[in-house]
Design a protein around this nucleic acid. Structure first.
Lengths: 250, 250
DNA sequence: CCCCTGCCTTGATATAGATCAAAACTGATG
DNA sequence: CATCAGTTTTGATCTATATCAAGGCAGGGG
């Protein structure tokens, strides 16, 4: 678990060719603005399971997720945990103007982040409105997502929660991968039952039971450990409890 | 209910003397920047219970809450409702760059909002970094609050939820009113049992029972319809399940 | 090849909170 | 002052999900 696989080290990438160039906090930057960021950026890699920072710890950088998935979670004194954010590629980690992390940040899968030390980043942000504008936009999106999640946590049944989670991951995955072989959607769900339960406000047993139920009813199939296949996305969507139209915004 | 009490009409206020001047989206504005906003602002008043906009409806303004409390909520097709935001004075309503409201916005109490038509506001925002900066800061605060709430919805018991709600309102109230007569905190909790249940992801019966329980144990007293007295804030805080130190920001 | 460790699944039971129901209160209206 | 609608409280019961418990399965290491 603590052994570092060599392939993760020394990830390097020109901004120009970066896979998240047009979705991350730098999305609106012009070439010269991008140069400023490129000069101060550095990459950090983590293996699945590693902790990036603990809640309350000093965190002197902000970052974009380049590849992999990170999670934000809170822990209560007695150990109850709730995940409060699922960070996919292009999502932003950290808060300008705050010294410490408010949440535990964990690598759910192998993870590469594009980091900026906080101080220089804040300086560049003041001089570069495009960054602040993009960050505002992204933060508003996160806020919408958090509120959507409040509905899920407060009012949905266990079955609806699971269906919602699968649909959301499938959507975000599809929007990146651009694959839509006929009607069947297949993708990686790289979360353990426990991680899902922390996200959904359930126990891992309930997660397992509900996934089994969806499988028995043919709403999903599972292949191997982490692969999910959705034969009919719309049918699964009906199980989420969301309005037939709108639903999640990504 | 639909009769409009005259006192609510025609609220007018110079920005200079505005009670939320230094907390709202205009907080960082210099005098000349404030002038720009002052020229396009207008006030709207709502009575307790009135709906400001429905989710999905066109919303061509953004606004700051000046006095009163507004709520944001989502409704599922079958009627289940979850409140996703509680907007107190100085909080911001609406999202620049979005045509329609994502949530039902309702006046929980009599309410006065300082409104800006969206288009001119967005133009001023582009020219005035202080507004965008402040809005980013406020949005990040909202996001933190939403995530704190996710923990509450996903993991807290009914009792902890109620204690948390009361503590949060008490805190925010205290930070505005600046009254701290000895140890005893007293303040208005202007939400019906139903509104509380929608916020906490409970039924109104459970809310009522838990409030009764806290009252019987002397953790709170109630005076009249809406007044709450907290004899010992720290003791109530212990019932929230939050870390003894940190807890909610705001 | 076998064992171990970490997941995952499934079953039996317990319980917090929902649901259903009725009565008590509160304040407004005629 | 009586009535009425909207709240709140409290009681009885039900149920979805948690909790406790036991096996099962897959992959890595010796």
């Amino acid at each position: 678990m603590t052994r570092t696989s060599p392939k993760l080290k020394n990830y390097v990438q020109e901004c120009i060719d970066c896979p998240i160039r047009h979705r991350a906090v730098c999305a609106r930057c012009e070439a010269d603005e991008l140069d400023l960021l490129e000069q101060i950026k550095y990459y950090r890699s983590f293996e699945a399971g590693q902790t990036v920072v603990w809640a309350g710890d000093r965190m002197d950088f902000v970052a974009s997720v380049v590849t992999g998935i990170a999670t934000l979670s809170q822990t209560m004194e007695d150990g109850r945990r709730q995940m409060v954010g699922l960070l996919l590629p292009s999502d932003f980690v950290g808060r300008p103007g705050r010294e410490t992390s408010a949440y535990d940040v964990t690598a759910a899968t192998d993870l590469v982040m594009c980091c900026f030390r906080k101080k220089p980043f804040e300086e560049i942000m003041l001089r570069t409105p495009h960054i602040g504008q993009r960050l505002l936009e992204m933060t508003l999106d996160e806020l919408d997502a958090a509120r959507e999640w409040m509905l899920l946590l407060g009012r949905k049944t266990a079955r609806e929660k699971i269906a919602s989670l699968i649909c959301i991951i499938a959507r975000r995955d599809a929007s990146l991968q651009l694959q839509a072989s006929d009607g069947e959607l297949r993708f990686d769900l790289p979360l353990t039952r426990e991680a899902m339960s922390e996200y959904l406000g359930l126990t891992l047993e309930t997660v397992s039971r509900q996934i089994s139920a969806l499988r028995k009813e043919g709403l999903i199939r599972t292949e191997g450990k982490r692969l999910i296949v959705i034969p009919d996305f719309d049918r699964l969507l009906e199980e989420t409890g969301d309005d037939s139209d709108g639903g999640f915004l990504v």
